[in-house]
């Protein structure tokens, strides 16, 4: 029987990367600038409400990498078109809406955010989103299946204006399942269990990109039992699988 010689582990490298982040942090020492005025900039993730009565919109793409536990040797990054819509209701309260689609499967969500500014650079928000997803596949000799479900995402975001033009947001979400129904031919399965399905962490940078166009660029790591985009694989695991996502959006 063969033995594998583990001479070095990737955890060491991650530790080194952490140290690098520390070094970069210290390299910023002494570069502080005057922060008297922080202009309001468009942002979808940054926890700052739009001007009351105004809309904020974005269109972009989300790439989700499939976990090997489900797609085995086929490791792909699946794109979804991603629309966001937000409306300010008051200085610190706004509504959110999001629509993601891959045509054969789509997800629509609504929610709200309540914002608490701490300084002119540091903001926090608490929010609650509820989403419904739907998928349908009709392929000869392969699929005659549909599924839909409802999930909810209580979330907390911390936003920090790194400089005048660059805002960073860290968001933590709990992923809670409310309802799941799938159907193959005439047989259907319904799960009504209301339980925590996982958590997700988002790291997002928002800034001007070219001319007056602003963008959101970031990553989201979801650790969850179920991911709506992979409903057609009928995952049976009760394990939190890792779904890394790359998020890129143009703020309109």
């Amino acid at each position: 029987m063969a033995t594998i010689r583990n001479l070095y582990t990737s955890s060491n490298l991650f530790r080194q990367l952490g140290y690098s982040a520390l070094l970069i942090g210290f390299a910023q020492l002494g570069m502080a600038q005057s922060s008297k005025v922080w202009p309001l900039q468009p942002g979808i993730y940054f926890p700052q409400a739009p001007v009351p009565g105004k809309w904020r919109k974005s269109v972009g793409v989300v790439f989700t990498t499939t976990p090997p536990e489900l797609t085995e040797e086929i490791r792909v990054s699946v794109p979804a078109i991603d629309f966001n819509l937000q409306r300010g209701l008051s200085k610190n309260f706004y509504l959110t809406g999001r629509f993601q689609t891959q045509f054969v499967q789509s997800n629509i969500g609504v929610g709200f955010r309540w914002v608490k500014p701490f300084t002119n650079r540091l903001f926090m928000s608490a929010g609650y989103d509820i989403t419904g997803w739907l998928g349908a596949l009709q392929i000869k000799d392969v699929f005659s299946s549909q599924a839909f479900g409802v999930e909810t995402f209580p979330n907390v975001s911390v936003g920090y204006k790194l400089t005048r033009d660059l805002r960073f947001t860290f968001r933590t979400e709990a992923i809670v399942d409310l309802y799941y129904r799938s159907q193959v031919g005439s047989l259907a399965v319904v799960y009504n269990r209301r339980e925590v399905n996982g958590v997700a962490f988002t790291f997002m940078l928002e800034q001007p990109f070219y001319h007056q166009r602003h963008v959101s660029v970031g990553v989201r790591g979801a650790y969850s039992n179920f991911n709506w985009q992979l409903w057609s694989l009928f995952d049976t695991f009760d394990r939190n699988l890792f779904y890394p996502q790359l998020i890129f959006g143009f703020i309109l």
Partner: peptide, 24 residues
Amino acid sequence: MKPVIYSLLGLLLVASLSCRKTYE
């Protein structure tokens, strides 16, 4: 303040993305 912020961000990112659990 800034070094602390950047350090925390870096560590958060590394911690989050290096926690892919291996089951056995």
